[in-house]
Computed example of a mutant assay.
Amino acid sequence: MKRLAIDVQPGEYAVARLDPGAPVPGLDAPDGLVSVTRTPAETSVICPAGLAPEGARVESGWRLLTVRGPLAFTLTGIIAALASELASAGVGLFTLSTFDTDHVLVKEGDLARAVQALRAAGHEVAE
C-alpha cells in the first residue's frame, strides 16, 4: 500500500440515525465534515457533535481522520488497508468516502492507538 498522508481533524464528531424519510436537518458546519445518507431504512448523519440532530439516535465521541486528497478513482485498497491496520491494533472504525477522498472515524479513546498504528504502517499522520 502506498504511504498515505492523513490529517486528524479537530473536534468531536457524532454519527446519528433518523427515521427513514425524516427531514434532513439544516446542518451548517463551514469548517467541519457533514454527511447525510438516506436509504429506505434510515437517514444517517455524520457531523460535528454539537450539530447532532435533535430526536436522533446519536453515537458521539468520534474523531475524524481524513486522507489527504484528492484521490484518483482508480486507486484501490485504501479503506481496506486502513481498516486492516486499525483492526490489527484493536481499533474499531466508521468510514465514509467523498468525491475527493476517504475519511475514517475512530472513537476518541482509540485515537492515540489509531495514530500509532497508522504511523507504524508507514503513513504520515498530522495531528
Rank of each mutant, 00 (worst) to 15 (best):
L4H: 07
P10C: 06
E12Q: 03
P20M: 03
G21I: 10
P23C: 00
V24R: 13
V24D: 10
P25H: 04
G26W: 02
L27R: 06
A29H: 03
G32E: 13
V34E: 01
V34L: 04
S35H: 03
V36I: 15
T37D: 03
T39K: 03
T39H: 05
E42N: 01
S44E: 09
V45C: 05
V45L: 04
L51Q: 01
A52R: 01
A52D: 01
P53R: 12
A56T: 05
R57L: 13
R57C: 10
E59C: 05
E59Y: 00
G61P: 00
W62C: 00
V67C: 08
R68K: 15
R68I: 14
G69S: 13
P70F: 11
L75A: 13
G77F: 09
I78G: 03
A81E: 14
A83R: 12
A83Q: 13
S84H: 09
S84Q: 14
E85T: 15
E85D: 13
L86N: 03
A87F: 13
A89E: 04
V91P: 02
V91C: 12
L93I: 15
L96E: 00
T98K: 00
F99I: 03
V106P: 05
K107G: 06
L111A: 06
R113T: 11
R113Q: 11
V115D: 00
Q116D: 03
A117P: 11
A120L: 07
G122L: 09
H123D: 08
E124T: 14
E124G: 12
